[in-house]
């Protein structure tokens, strides 16, 4: 038998209502699985109690790696491997190495950070997203609550808490094991054999 994952989702239209709802729900000791929004909502991460993003640190580390590589490359090539007199300057003329070092810093920092972001959030071209509600990329904010993780409350209690805090609709969403670990190949095969409405991970 497949083990299903059961979620209850609250639908919100306004991000101020969403923010206050998230605070109210968390005050009642209910664990929120995740919130899906069509655009970045400021202070939502604080309301959900997430730690601040560490992407700036990744960018810094990749940046200094870039600087180091650039300086080493230039010093080793023009200073050690094949020293040449150019315009009467010293072999290792640091001021001349500044532009390339700067560009390499930016290049490494940007690519390193974006790569880290993709890796950490598991974003890749062949990923099949687990969509709770298709409207979450359009105009609705979706609060997903895991029923199993909150088993001390009944589904009706959770529904009424969501409604009290301003949810316009409350729906349930079940994912099967094959939904949770969807294979991209299966998704593509399903998409082309059954059409857009009935793919392996239906986007209802």
């Amino acid at each position: 038998m497949e083990k299903n994952k059961h979620f209850i989702t609250g639908v919100f239209s306004d991000h101020s209502v969403l923010l206050s709802a998230v605070k109210k729900i968390r005050e009642k000791n209910i664990k929120i699985h995740e919130v899906f929004t069509p655009y970045p909502v400021h202070h939502l991460e604080d309301a959900l109690g997430y730690k601040r993003s560490w992407m700036p640190k990744a960018a810094f580390l990749f940046g200094i790696t870039g600087t180091t590589c650039a300086i080493l490359m230039q010093v080793l090539m023009l200073g050690v491997d094949w020293p040449m007199i150019i315009g009467g300057k010293p072999f290792i003329s640091i001021p001349d190495f500044v532009p390339v070092s700067f560009e390499m810093t930016v290049l490494f920092a940007a690519f390193g950070m974006v790569g880290t972001f993709f890796f950490v959030r598991d974003l890749k071209p062949y990923k099949v997203p687990r969509v709770f509600d298709r409207r979450s990329t359009d105009d609705k904010h979706i609060v997903a609550i895991d029923l199993v993780a909150n088993n001390e409350k009944t589904q009706d209690e959770l529904t009424s808490i969501l409604q009290e805090s301003g949810a316009e609709e409350v729906n349930t969403r079940n994912f099967t094991d094959s939904d949770n670990e969807a294979s991209f190949v299966k998704y593509v095969v399903d998409l082309f054999s059954n059409g857009v409405t009935s793919s392996s991970r239906s986007l209802s």
Binding site: E34, F36, V41, Y50, P125, K127, P129, S136
Partner: peptide, 10 residues
């Protein structure tokens, strides 16, 4: 890239 608009990703 399978972006889902979750709060953590945002």
């Amino acid at each position: 890239f399978g972006f889902d608009g979750s709060a953590k990703t945002w």
